[in-house]
């Protein structure tokens, strides 16, 4: 099984859990919001890692790795995963895209909506569990699928 070597991915998941466990028995809404945001960023970083690792490899010097890692923008990720080319890579890839898309929406609400956050601790833990599932799916993608997905997420679409 492939392992995502960039520690930020798993540490953001740990951070998401820690925000819910520290402090009072009932977390405050800010802790829940930050936990959802951490979950999203864990998956987003995992996808960015996939693109750079799949195209140039983790052991490549930063000057080559970083530009690829940072070339996928949040909106692009949502759009690219929704394309038929990416969807045709299989159910595991579709599930990763669905988790990412769902977390984009939740992160948007968590970070920007000032109204009371309508998600309790158990529901937030369920979101974290889905983020963890996305990371597990990325780590277990077949090598060829992993590389094709990296290409499709980064390459500029061809105009016919």
């Amino acid at each position: 099984m492939r392992q995502i070597k960039h520690r930020i991915v798993r540490e953001l998941i740990q951070s998401a859990h820690a925000r819910l466990e520290s402090g009072p028995t009932r977390p405050n809404q800010t802790a829940l919001r930050r936990s959802v945001s951490d979950s999203y960023y864990a998956v987003f970083h995992a996808v960015c890692y996939l693109t750079a690792d799949g195209l140039v490899g983790w052991n490549t010097p930063w000057e080559s790795f970083e530009p690829i890692y940072r070339s996928l923008e949040h909106q692009d990720a949502k759009k690219r995963f929704a394309t038929p080319e990416v969807a045709s890579l299989g159910p595991e890839v579709r599930r990763i895209g669905e988790i990412l898309r769902d977390l984009i929406k939740e992160r948007h609400t968590a970070d920007y909506d000032p109204r009371p956050f309508a998600t309790n601790k158990a529901e937030t833990l369920a979101r974290i569990a889905q983020a963890e599932e996305a990371i597990d799916l990325i780590e277990t993608l077949p090598k060829a699928t992993y590389r094709k997905l990296a290409v499709l997420l980064i390459a500029k679409p061809r105009r016919s």
Binding site: R26, A31, L32, D102, K105, N120, A122, E123, A126
Partner: peptide, 17 residues
């Protein structure tokens, strides 16, 4: 796209901000 929220009623409400 189907955005799905999993809802568990009966849990303690989070503390107000």
């Amino acid at each position: 796209f189907p955005y799905v929220s999993y809802r568990l009623p009966g849990e303690p409400e989070p503390l107000s901000d």
